[in-house]
Design a protein around this nucleic acid. Sequence first.
DNA 1: CGACGTGTAAC
DNA 2: CCTTTTACACGTCG
Length: 385
Amino acid sequence: MQRIVMHLDMDSFYASVEALRRPELKGKPLAICVFSGRTKDSGAVASASYAARAMGIRAGLSIREARAKAAAWTKAAEGKGDRSPSDAQGSGEVAFLPYDIEYYRQVSDRIVGILEEEADAVQQAGIDEAYMDVTDRAGGDWDRAREMALRIKRRVLEEEGLTCSIGIGPNKFVAKMASKRQKPDGLTVVRTADVGGFLAGLPVGKLHGIGGKTAGTLEGMGIRTAAELAAAPEKGLEEAFGERKSRLLREKALGLEDSPVERRLPKQFSRLGTLKEDTDDTEAIMEKLEALSGSLKKRLDGKGISFRTVTFIGIDDRLGLRTRSETMGETADVAKALPVLRKLVSSFVSEFRGRKLRRVGLTLSNLTYGTESRDVKGQKSLKEF
DNA sequence: CGACGTGTAAC
DNA sequence: CCTTTTACACGTCG
């Protein structure tokens, strides 16, 4: 049977969730911010509501830049005595709210619960998106799949008060591209026969998985659209990208992909934070790492996860990132990670003497789920579950 | 092959 | 002067 896959993407997820908590904010320009704590306004925007996006505020901007955009907008509106619809909704009063990932995770988990009731298989792909395989339930019928998507959108709206956009296609890649087509509150179906036409005119950089670097290289080769990429001579691509990646690029251009929708367990957990001031002092760094590891501990303990590999992440004053890691002989808990981190940090600072760090963090990986322990060869040595 | 470090990508 | 978190590919080393 022809596979049918959906991709659901929540609309400006963080901002919409905050608007639910504080209904007076609904429809207003909101910027959900990660305040780094270094200065009053240091940090970045993690998500912006649609009213804020209309002012040019979007995820990734520094909070300072976002405030400048908000101010510029207000000034322009005042100067013209203008009250256009988007700005009647509250220009000049962009709400800059702190981001609350714990809470967003709770909402996200409930939405995934809904999806699991509606689909044959669900794969979470980030806090605000998920793939669903609906082949069996739709009986391979695109119209039925569309009805299912409408039902999912209705349930998410009724039960969580949130809108989302859904794309439907013959595989995950096309479904993902389709969900981006119409937002917010969109629904886009791309049948197998329509895949070619759907992708052909898209700039290569818009294809999921092709970022700035790859798009730049392709453009340098005169390849600008998916159709041009699909038709590009194999030889040139392989010279630039190697065999494996070339094949991947070609498949993207053609919308060919067939990986299953499957529940995945995280392979690593990490936390990164900004130091009050740049430092090369092991003790100051350890203090920050202890705080960060505490929040990781909560997440791991709750799920009964242990790990073998600890990675120290250091980001210097020029924003260059370096890592140092060590794998232990047996699975460990967070308490055992601290002495390992201390070792990694001190070797790091002596190696990069004079290079002060701005941000530090840690990653825990090589995970073991459940209560079993594991020896060096990765064999389960106690109870299987 | 496992371990380690880096780059790319998406969020 | 700028966030966070995760995944994965690739090169290299022993």
